[in-house]
């Protein structure tokens, strides 16, 4: 698609600046994905030192967010981008915000990992966490990939996957509630599992937002808050 060629401006510097904000956003996405995977692994293996690493590295993610946002602001001030360039800057700026929030969710999962590791491993609920975590990490990976390739179809497919994550989340909650009813002594621990699932489900929502930005970037259509069928039309 011709309009997605960001390297053809008369100004080479403009090309570089646009390329750079996009590349840095994708780098940040890679780091966030790593954080999310590490936090889930820390939880599964009751590895509190890995969880500590996730907590420490969150500051790095925050720094990246601010730097990329500043680069976007400067780009708008200097270049007054229009059309696809403008959509690129806006999409990057919003995606960066979602990535930072996913970083926050990873932070939450890491904290739960520390809490749960102090209590010893609990077999119940971990299957659900692993399942949902795998889906969410795959979603994030695909949404970043769709952004990198300007692939609307991939973005729409990934959007659809969020429905499945939401359904899995709800059924996991139902199951966890029955655990709590069976054994009230497990409530604290099961609540931690629930918060973790909640954090993962939120991370899925943010990945979905990134996919919506991909559609906006490529097609110029704002599909937020609409239903998926409309977006696919």
């Amino acid at each position: 698609m011709a309009s997605m060629q960001f390297d053809q401006h008369i100004s080479q510097e403009f090309n570089d600046e646009l390329e750079q904000v996009k590349t840095r956003m994708l780098e940040m996405g890679g780091s966030v994905l790593q954080q999310l995977q590490d936090s889930v692994r820390a939880l599964e293996h009751a590895d509190s030192s890995l969880a500590d690493k996730v907590l420490e590295e969150e500051a790095e993610i925050d720094k990246m967010e601010m730097e990329i946002d500043e680069a976007c602001t400067l780009l708008i001030a200097r270049r007054q981008p229009a059309a696809s360039d403008l959509r690129m800057v806006m999409a990057v700026s919003k995606a960066v915000c979602d990535l930072e929030r996913i970083g926050d969710e990873a932070h939450r999962v890491a904290k739960m990992a520390i809490n749960l590791s102090e209590e010893g491993t609990a077999p119940r609920g971990y299957v659900e966490i692993r399942h949902i975590a795998n889906s969410v990490c795959a979603m994030l990976n695909k949404s970043l990939d769709a952004f990198a390739r300007y692939d609307v179809d991939a973005a729409l497919d990934t959007l659809a996957e969020d429905r499945q994550v939401d359904m899995d989340y709800k059924s996991a909650l139902r199951e966890l509630v029955t655990y709590m009813m069976e054994d009230p002594r497990s409530i604290t621990r099961v609540m931690n599992i629930m918060w973790t699932l909640r954090a993962l489900e939120r991370a899925g929502d943010h990945s979905k937002n990134i996919c919506e930005q991909v559609v906006y970037l490529v097609k110029g259509k704002d599909i937020r808050h609409g239903n998926l069928d409309e977006a696919q039309a």
């Binding site: 011709a2 309009s3 060629q5 053809q8 401006h9 008369i10 229009a82 059309a83 403008l86």
Partner: peptide
């Protein structure tokens, strides 16, 4: 026109591609 123009030439012009 300034957020998502329909024609490639319009896009190219307003974004400074030629």
């Amino acid at each position: 026109v300034f957020t998502s123009p329909e024609h490639e030439l319009t896009e190219a012009y307003i974004t400074g591609r030629f």
